[in-house]
């Protein structure tokens, strides 16, 4: 049985429309108009225990909203979500003891106290045994290299350090399901990598089910076998990351280098879209179904030193997917 099941999940926000200017404000005192934002619109998917799934989507796609509904923070407008057999919006204690949510943009640690105080409070709230607590704490502070920072006031920690403690605070009770909303936002490359590796290892070791959102493709590529792409509240793709490329990118890139450097750009133009050109080397963008023919043409008509066929970089494909949704 899947550990997370989502069926036709929908969340509509109703917000007040405001006319510009002082006149609009006065008018707003007496009558109000509302606009509806369909933040999540009829989304369905299932996730099996132990999977690490990435949520992809541009700003405002509805990723955070989905995670919040899975945590029981928001009530769905319609549709159903079940996690570990629980309905999240009921917020049963049994459910809440078994999952965790980390949000890169919000913090749960007490601002004016050392991180360890917040961790300890969490331990007591979740009813974690002393021994288990000590063990998890040692293990994770070691792994994330923040052992020395336990006694430092949270407001004096750097963003990356604080994020690591946020992660630890959420993992003390060894949740079965872990929801990570942009855990690497605003971090430098090293810290990003650090956290990324931690998540990977944690997932492999503990078989925790993880949903991750991130705008950094590096995160997604390194961690997620499976991605769910959301745009404007709709699910537009669900499957392996590689398949995203196959499905959405109609072209491939052919890189050729020539033996003698007297090929002109005009000679290449009929074969495909010339992206890069020097006298000895060129990159051509070619429709998927033409790749074979074009490479043949290249090999027969020119003196080719080396030829290389690649997929378009994932960032570009994703960019295209996002743009496509806008139309």
């Amino acid at each position: 049985m899947p550990i997370i099941e989502v069926e036709h999940l929908t969340k509509i926000y109703r917000t007040q429309k405001r006319l510009p200017g002082l006149g609009g404000a006065v008018q707003g005192l007496f009558n109000r108009e509302y606009t509806e934002v369909r933040a999540v619109d009829d989304v369905s998917f299932t996730i099996e225990e132990g999977e690490l799934v990435g949520f992809l989507g541009p700003n405002g796609a509805g990723k955070t909203t989905t995670l919040k509904m899975l945590s029981g923070i928001l009530y769905p407008t319609s549709g159903k979500a079940r996690v570990m057999g629980f309905t999240p919006s009921e917020r049963k204690n049994d459910y809440r003891r078994q999952f965790a949510l980390v949000m890169g943009q919000k913090n749960q640690l007490w601002w004016d106290l050392p991180a360890q105080e917040s961790l300890y409070l969490n331990k007591e709230i979740y009813g974690v045994e002393d021994e288990a607590y000590q063990k998890v704490l040692d293990e994770m502070t070691e792994l994330l290299q923040v052992k020395k920072l336990l006694g430092i006031m949270v407001r004096e920690l750097s963003l990356g350090e604080r994020m690591k403690f946020e992660l630890i605070a959420s993992l003390l009770h060894r949740p079965r399901v872990l929801l990570l909303d942009e855990p690497t936002i605003g971090l430098d490359v090293v810290a990003q990598k650090n956290i990324r590796e931690f998540i990977k290892e944690y997932n492999q070791k503990t078989k925790t089910t993880i949903i991750l959102t991130s705008h950094y493709m590096n995160d997604i590529q390194a961690l997620c076998d499976r991605v769910v792409v959301i745009n404007h509240g709709h699910k537009i793709f669900d499957g392996r990351l590689d398949d995203v490329v196959e499905k959405f990118s109609q072209s491939k890139l052919i890189t050729v280098s020539f033996k003698n450097g007297n090929i002109s750009k005009d000679q290449l133009a009929p074969l495909g879209n010339v992206l890069e050109y020097t006298q000895v080397k060129a990159v051509l963008k070619v429709p998927r179904d033409q790749v074979k023919k074009t490479s043949n043409d290249l090999l027969t008509n020119f003196e080719v030193d080396d030829i290389n066929i690649e997929e378009v970089p994932i960032e570009e494909v994703i960019e295209m997917v996002f743009k496509e949704g806008d139309q």
Partner: peptide
């Protein structure tokens, strides 16, 4: 002055 007033009016019930 007018921006400030608008801000205030947005919260009708409050007033």
């Amino acid at each position: 002055l007018s921006t400030r007033t608008q801000e205030d009016m947005a919260y009708r019930a409050n007033y």
